[in-house]
Simulated scan of single mutants.
Amino acid sequence: MEALAQYVTREGRPPGRGVVEVLPDGTEHRTGIWIGNQKARRDKLDAEQLAALTALGIDWA
């Protein structure tokens, strides 16, 4: 979520599938792939997780 929030704050939109976000601690996160995985497993996400994704502009959440 941190990588997604960082990207959306900077770019103003959700990332595409190939986006790799570098976090402040220097680690890389495949944010675009992560969103795809969340979408595929969205039936296992709870309401709080879906609300957090919706707040960051993920329209299917």
Rank of each mutant, 00 (worst) to 15 (best):
M1Y: 12
E2P: 02
A3F: 06
A3N: 05
L4I: 10
L4N: 03
A5G: 10
A5F: 07
Q6D: 04
Q6F: 06
Q6T: 04
Y7R: 00
Y7F: 15
Y7S: 01
V8P: 01
T9M: 06
T9Q: 08
T9Y: 01
R10F: 07
R10N: 01
R10L: 07
E11R: 07
E11D: 08
E11P: 03
E11K: 10
E11A: 12
G12I: 14
G12V: 14
G12H: 12
G12W: 12
R13A: 08
R13K: 15
R13V: 14
P14G: 00
P15W: 07
G16L: 04
R17K: 09
R17L: 15
G18K: 10
G18V: 04
G18W: 08
V19W: 01
V19H: 01
V19L: 02
V20L: 14
V20Y: 09
E21Q: 15
E21D: 05
E21P: 00
E21L: 01
V22D: 02
V22F: 02
V22W: 00
V22A: 05
P24L: 13
P24Y: 06
P24M: 11
D25Y: 11
G26R: 06
G26Y: 07
G26N: 12
G26Q: 11
G26F: 09
T27C: 10
T27D: 08
T27E: 15
T27M: 13
E28V: 13
E28A: 12
H29D: 15
H29E: 08
T31I: 15
T31A: 09
G32K: 02
G32S: 13
G32C: 11
G32I: 15
I33K: 05
I33M: 11
W34F: 13
W34K: 04
I35Q: 05
G36F: 05
G36M: 07
N37P: 03
N37H: 09
N37K: 12
Q38A: 14
Q38I: 14
Q38V: 10
K39H: 10
A40C: 06
R41L: 09
R41M: 12
R41P: 00
R41Y: 03
R42P: 02
D43R: 09
D43T: 10
K44P: 01
K44Y: 11
K44F: 11
L45R: 06
L45M: 15
A47E: 11
A47M: 04
A47C: 01
A47Q: 04
E48H: 09
E48V: 13
E48T: 14
Q49K: 06
Q49S: 11
A51E: 07
A52P: 01
A52D: 08
L53C: 11
L53V: 09
T54S: 10
T54L: 07
A55P: 00
G57N: 08
G57E: 01
I58G: 00
I58C: 13
D59G: 06
D59M: 07
W60E: 00
W60P: 03
W60G: 02
A61P: 04
